[in-house]
């Protein structure tokens, strides 16, 4: 009986362990080893921190790195600010069919591939696009307006792409807050602001934190949206990694960049958890 249970456990865990080891652990170990190689001649390598030193001494790399981190954090913040009222409405104010319909509406864009969705934004924002034409027709602009290829366009794309990943955890945690508790807050003299601040937000914190972690990681590692909406000069860190690997064929530096990105996201997530006084187990469990 005991042996059977153990075999069952092993069988159940096998896919997960295979996935983790083959796709995450082994490639990362290899990446790490590659990042520590320095090319000294044709087919000749030695171990050195040269790639990491290159990163630290080249201002463009450093600046792109910082810019990516700040933009991703900003995108997370904007997503949270937009998603919170939406989630609150879905979880606490909408009833029955309206609620499911609204929730479905949040999901609908994800039936289309991310590429097509991003093209949608391009159709709207480009020089000959819908908004530009509309502005000219209304007499608000006397020539075509280019709204693509700037930071605002990247931000719009990032927020749009990650909205669902913020709404889902928020709706789930807000739904678990009984209406009675909110009513008690008002009954005992609370105003809209104080009920929100002292009751709703503290209750929703686990959802806020987990939503923010997911959205931040997605934004930081996003390649498609910054490239398409931000153009060639969008200076997104994933683009640097891509160009090192594919364009420059400098796998060593690319691997080092990849590792730095991993380090950065881990560091910021850890900082976020520390700041809110949550542990990863509590947030995810």
């Amino acid at each position: 009986m005991k042996a059977e249970a153990r075999i069952g456990l092993i069988l159940l865990l096998t896919p997960l362990l295979l996935w983790l080891s083959l796709l995450i652990v082994i490639p990362h170990i290899d990446m790490f080893l590659v990042s520590l190689r320095e090319r000294v001649g044709v087919g000749e390598y030695r171990i050195s921190p040269a790639n990491y030193l290159t990163f630290l001494t080249e201002p463009l790399y450093l600046r792109t790195f910082a810019r990516t981190a700040i933009m991703a954090m900003l995108a997370t913040l904007i997503t949270l600010l937009i998603a919170f009222p939406v989630s609150y409405y879905i979880a606490k104010m909408a009833r029955g069919r309206t609620r499911s319909a609204l929730f479905l509406l949040c999901l609908v864009p994800f039936w289309v591939s991310e590429l097509v969705r991003t093209f949608g934004w391009m159709i709207l924002l480009r020089e000959t696009g819908l908004i530009s034409t509309l502005l000219q027709w209304a007499g608000l602009a006397d020539q075509p307006v280019e709204m693509l290829y700037n930071d605002a366009a990247i931000m719009v794309g990032l927020v749009y792409t990650s909205m669902l990943f913020m709404v889902v955890p928020l709706v789930t945690t807000l739904e678990s807050l009984p209406d009675e508790v909110i009513e008690a807050g008002y009954d005992l003299g609370g105003t809209n602001v104080s009920v929100m601040r002292e009751i709703v937000i503290p209750h929703a914190t686990p959802g806020i934190v987990s939503g923010c972690i997911v959205v931040f990681m997605l934004s930081l590692g996003n390649y498609l949206t910054p490239t398409m909406l931000g153009g060639k000069d969008s200076l997104w860190f994933t683009e640097l990694i891509y160009s090192q690997f594919i364009v420059r064929f400098n796998w060593e530096l690319g691997a080092a960049f990849g590792f730095l990105l991993l380090l950065l996201s881990s560091l910021i997530v850890w900082g976020m958890l520390r700041l809110t006084g949550h542990t990863l187990e509590r947030t995810m469990g």
Binding site: P178, E180, V181, E183, A184, D187, P202
Partner: peptide
Amino acid sequence: VNMVFQHLALFPM
């Protein structure tokens, strides 16, 4: 007027 709710609605946080 104050109310004691059916499930008490104490603030768990």
